[in-house]
């Protein structure tokens, strides 16, 4: 290969991308190192996040300066993150498969571009606008109708009991996440369904299958890989979603969710909500512990995304991967 300065320049520009990933993990790790050392592995399993007494003289514990009584545990936020993502996927997966089947096989071909555009637009509505809609529409809806109805019908299960006095909490966060995850899963499965070879479909028809049976029994199993990859991709989005969740979650601290309407915090939403209080900490340990949360979130989402990309690699080229 000839190495002209031009080509070296291009390699440099392309190298910025892996460089960015390395820089992010490196700086987060270096900056949060004192916090990692101070918090230990218990960081992941403690329920209490307490900044300590910010006005008294800091004390030295484990070789670092921290405010008196400071304790940093993120179990509540890990549980909040996992619970919202799990509920969102539980709803989003069947809905997305239904939408994808409808778009690929059910809808009239002339309407297909318009209908799939509608689904794609769901993916580009900014997170903060979902939050606004959540506050203005979804939260009152949950407080006045959905939560009482769940209490009436499924109230004998403690998880669904109690209604919801405010509407802010686990259910509203999960529903907002559902809306944001559906377009991701739908787009991937839809484009995979379109690529199912015609002869395979015709073989199913020849066996006497009806159109819907062809879609569900023959085509869906053929795109199994794409479905799994799409779900994991959606999981990655749900785990890291910040603003919409922050606005409708109720912002719980030191309190594990007991019912579907309990207030919660996710790792991402907690980082944003804590900026002002953490900056008050003269020892900086709170800001470093927030960096540790960001590092944990980074590692989780990198793993999830690597798995998703390995599965879907070569299966489709997505326009809606971010946005």
């Amino acid at each position: 290969m000839r190495t002209s300065p031009f080509r070296i320049g291009l390699v440099g520009l392309a190298g910025i991308i892996p460089g960015m990933l390395v820089a992010v993990v490196l700086f987060l790790a270096i900056y949060s190192w004192p916090a990692i050392h101070f918090n230990g592995i218990g960081f992941l399993f403690r329920e209490t996040w307490n900044l300590g007494n910010l006005y008294a003289d800091p004390v030295t514990r484990r070789g670092v300066q921290v405010p008196i009584g400071a304790q940093y545990g993120i179990l509540v936020f890990i549980v909040g993150t996992l619970a919202t993502s799990a509920i969102a996927l539980l709803i989003a997966v069947p809905v997305s498969l239904g939408v994808a089947i409808f778009l690929a096989e059910g809808a009239p071909p002339r309407l297909r571009p318009t209908l799939s555009l509608i689904v794609e637009l769901l993916a580009v509505v900014p997170s903060v606008v979902y939050g606004l809609w959540g506050v203005a529409v979804l939260v009152p809806l949950i407080a006045h109708y959905i939560a009482p109805a769940l209490d009436d019908v499924l109230g004998f299960i403690p998880f669904f009991a109690g209604g919801s006095p405010t509407g802010f909490g686990l259910l509203s966060s999960s529903l907002v996440l559902t809306l944001m995850v559906v377009p991701i899963i739908t787009a991937t499965v839809y484009s995979a369904l379109l690529q199912v070879p015609r002869p395979d479909k015709e073989a199913a028809y020849a066996l006497g299958a009806m159109k819907f049976e062809v879609a569900v029994r023959a085509m869906l199993p053929m795109v199994r890989g794409s479905i799994v990859g799409a779900i994991i991709l959606g999981l990655g989005r749900a785990l890291g979603e910040t603003m919409a969740v922050l606005m409708v979650s109720g912002g719980a601290i030191n309190h594990l969710p007991g019912t579907i309407t309990s207030p919660i915090s996710t790792m991402a939403s907690f980082i944003v909500s804590q900026l002002d209080s953490a900056e008050q900490d003269p020892t900086g340990m709170a800001v470093r512990s927030l960096a540790e949360i960001a590092l944990v979130l980074f590692i989780i989402t990198v793993i999830v995304n690597v798995i998703a990309r390995l599965i879907t690699r070569g299966l489709h080229v997505g326009l809606t991967s971010r946005a």
């Binding site: 991308i17 960015m20 990933l21 992010v24 987060l28 991709l233 990655g236 989005r237 785990l239 890291g240 979603e241 910040t242 991402a268 980082i271 944003v272 960001a294 979130l297 980074f298 989402t301 990198v302 999830v304 995304n305 998703a308 990309r309 991967s321 971010r322």
Partner: peptide, 8 residues
């Protein structure tokens, strides 16, 4: 990288 949460 496109899958990394923007807050991170």
């Amino acid at each position: 990288l496109t899958g990394i949460p923007s807050i991170v």
